[in-house]
Amino acid sequence: MGFCLYTLPSFSEVLKEIKSKLRPTKSNALNTRRLALPEELCCRFSLADIKAATNNFHKNMIIAEGDTGFIFGGKINDGFYAIKRLRPTSDSHLPLLELRYGVKFLSQLHHPNIISLLGYCDEKEEMIHVYEYANNGSLYDNLHAENHDPIPWKRRLEICISVARALHYLHTGAKFVLIHRNVSSKNILLDDQWTSKLCNFSFCKRGPHSMSRDPISIEIESDIAYTSAFIAPEVAITGRVSHKTDVFSFG
């Protein structure tokens, strides 16, 4: 079946749109009902489905904690999924951007080394993503946690090659060049077959048409930053990114 990537807005356009629609309140400045997320891109789960899968977000169902929220393991219908409950805050647009960009970008990408987004929920101020479950955790945890066996060198090489393939797909395989902008060992998940899955597209930036000869150099918002340990020096100096920025972070 053919696949077509929709024309997507730039990161700055989405940020401006969100900021223009946010109305501060005493409790929470993020109003997810204003997102108007495109349901045709992936499944929209009800909050009742999510609560049933996570035992009403019980702490015993938490399998990991990300930068923007907790990740629960839960069963929906006959499948077991990773359910990320984004953490809304009054002083950050990141959870809101992650919800929208996850649907806009990730639901349209189909590659064996990119995590699959099954659906989302934005009901009653909740911001939730439902992903395929990668039961071997992140590459970072496997490299650094004391309770993990060392990863064999052959497997490490296979992981590197798989991540390189995912980045090559983002840079050349979709309709538009997509720059991940946050490549790190924490954003590489491993499934039960130790297949690597690139995840966390919160900072993803759309570039020119993949068939275009236009140079890939995109200005970024000054308040959005990479994980500092993996940032390319030229990004901090020029405030611009390209596909080479992902390659530096990958290296």
Rank of each mutant, 00 (worst) to 15 (best):
G119R: 00
Y101D: 00
W194S: 08
R87I: 09
N136I: 07
S210G: 01
D191F: 03
Y6E: 15
S228R: 14
P150G: 11
A134V: 05
K124S: 10
A166S: 14
E219V: 14
V183F: 01
R155G: 02
R100W: 10
T25C: 02
Y169D: 04
H209A: 14
M1H: 10
F11T: 00
Q108K: 02
L109G: 01
L106N: 05
K16P: 00
K186R: 15
H111Y: 04
D149L: 13
K205N: 04
I71Q: 01
H129P: 00
L157N: 09
Y81Q: 07
F230I: 12
K16N: 13
S12I: 10
V177G: 03
F176R: 12
E146S: 13
R87K: 15
L118M: 11
D223V: 08
P150T: 11
T7Q: 10
K124R: 11
F70N: 13
L143C: 03
G239T: 06
L139K: 08
G119P: 01
I179Q: 03
F70A: 07
K75C: 07
G251K: 12
N113H: 13
G66K: 00
G74Y: 09
R33D: 14
Y81V: 09
I18M: 13
D122M: 03
P208L: 11
L198D: 00
D149E: 15
P88E: 12
E98T: 08
H180Q: 05
S138Y: 09
Y169T: 01
L47V: 05
S210V: 10
D246E: 05
L170I: 07
S202K: 03
K175G: 14
S212H: 04
S222K: 14
F201Q: 00
I71W: 02
L41Y: 12
G69S: 09
D49W: 01
H111S: 06
P150K: 10
W194H: 07
K26A: 13
G207C: 09
S212W: 05
S138E: 12
F11P: 00
S196L: 03
G239Q: 05
P208E: 09
H148R: 15
S228K: 14
D223I: 10
S20C: 06
L143T: 05
G102K: 02
K75F: 05
A64H: 03
N200D: 15
L96A: 13
K175P: 00
R100P: 00
K26N: 12
E98L: 04
R87Y: 15
L143V: 06
N56L: 06
G2S: 11
P24M: 06
L190E: 05
G66T: 03
G69A: 07
K244M: 08
D191S: 06
A225S: 14
N135W: 04
M1G: 11
A82Y: 06
D149F: 10
Y169W: 06
F203L: 15
